[in-house]
Each structure stands twice: as C-alpha cells, then as structure tokens.
C-alpha cells in the first residue's frame, strides 16, 4: 500500500517539530536529544533523527508527517524520507543570522523532490526579526520557484500550518475543488 506523506524541513529552530505537533492527530513521536555541536547555543534539544506525526482522514486513510532533522549531518536521511512524499513544507527561521543561506541550502538539498512534487514556504519568527520581508524572499527565490507560496507562519498556530499545507495542495492541483 502506498504511503502518503508530507515532509517538513528547515534549519534548526524553524519550528518543524512544533508545526507537526500543531497538525498531528496523534501525539507526535519526537526523537529530540540533547543538542551537541553548533545547535547547542540555540536550543537545548534538537531533532536528531526525525519527527513523526499523523493525519487521520475520513475512510481510515492516513497522511504521515515527517520532520527532517535540523542538523546538517543527518542529511543522508533526507532522500529516504522524501520517497513517496506529496510535497515539501520548508520552514525558515527569520531570526537566524543568514536566512537566505538557509533557504538556498534547503532548496538545493530538496530540488529533486520539489521538482516532482510541490513546495510551500513558511517564514517563522517574523515577530522577532521583521527583515528580510516576504517580498525579499520572493526576490531571492530562483525563477522556477516564483509561484511558490511564502507565508508568515507561527508554527504554534494550527491555522497558519493548515493554510500552508492547503496552499501546497492547491499548488499541486488547482482544480482540486472544481
């Protein structure tokens, strides 16, 4: 049976685990561990394997939600995680020192998957750092991603995460409702 999943990715502290918690119908399975290396200064725990949540649809189907680890040394897992994925939700922490560098890194890392599916970008922590603006993000996106939805997101806010996923689905199939 095909496993349907949505992948959430982004740098450390972007809100992936929180977003999954906002959406999931089960208590998310998190493999947070005490952070080592460079993440230690930012948060005491970080996801070293993955986050996992589940959306239960009518009729018994399920959508799996996978959050990738934020630490770059776990990127070998990303190819495995994305296999069979519906689309990618990229969360960028606007309060990090170089959010555009993060953006470029994740777009490059997942370009193969995005080309086969769709992308929606949520910019978090904009209440703490209001620059760059969403217009700046659009200016920074490579032309092939110019149609991508980019929203200000609070990962704790269920509505924000729902709208982000909704935009991902309409990007995949605009006639979804027609």
């Amino acid at each position: 049976m095909t496993e349907h999943k949505i992948i959430l990715t982004g740098p450390v502290g972007a809100g992936k685990s929180t977003a999954i918690r906002s959406l999931s119908d089960i208590e998310p399975v998190s493999t947070d561990e005490l952070a080592s290396d460079i993440t230690k200064a930012r948060k005491s725990q970080t996801t070293v394997a993955m986050d996992y949540g589940l959306l239960k649809l009518d009729g018994g189907e399920t959508i799996h939600l996978y959050g990738t680890p934020g630490q770059e040394r776990f990127d070998f897992m990303w190819d495995i995680l994305t296999t069979g994925g519906i689309g990618l939700v990229l969360l960028i922490n606007n309060a990090r020192p170089a959010p555009f560098k993060d953006l470029a890194f994740f777009l490059a890392a997942f370009s193969g998957f995005i080309d086969k599916s769709a992308l929606a970008i949520g910019v978090t922590q904009m209440d703490i750092a209001d620059a760059p603006t969403l217009d700046d993000y659009y200016a920074e996106l490579p032309p092939k991603y110019s149609n991508t939805p980019v929203f200000e997101v609070d990962a704790r806010n269920k509505n924000d995460v729902v709208i982000l996923v909704e935009s991902l689905l309409f990007s995949l199939d605009q006639g979804l409702e027609a």
């Binding site: 349907h4 649809l57 009518d58 009729g59 959508i63 996923v165 995949l172 199939d173 979804l176």
Partner: peptide, 25 residues
C-alpha cells in the same frame, strides 16, 4: 520573468486523496 505553468494543469493522480486531506485540514 514569471514562470507561467500550463493554463490547464492536468488533474493530479491523488486528487481524491487531496480532497479528503483538505477536508480534514
């Protein structure tokens, strides 16, 4: 400089699943 996608994008093979997912959301 905008990349215009085809005007009539074909129906996605998972449209039924997406509908149910939207309903859940």
């Amino acid at each position: 400089g905008r990349t215009e996608k085809p005007a009539s994008k074909p129906k996605h093979k998972h449209r039924g699943l997406f509908r149910r997912l939207l309903k859940t959301l």
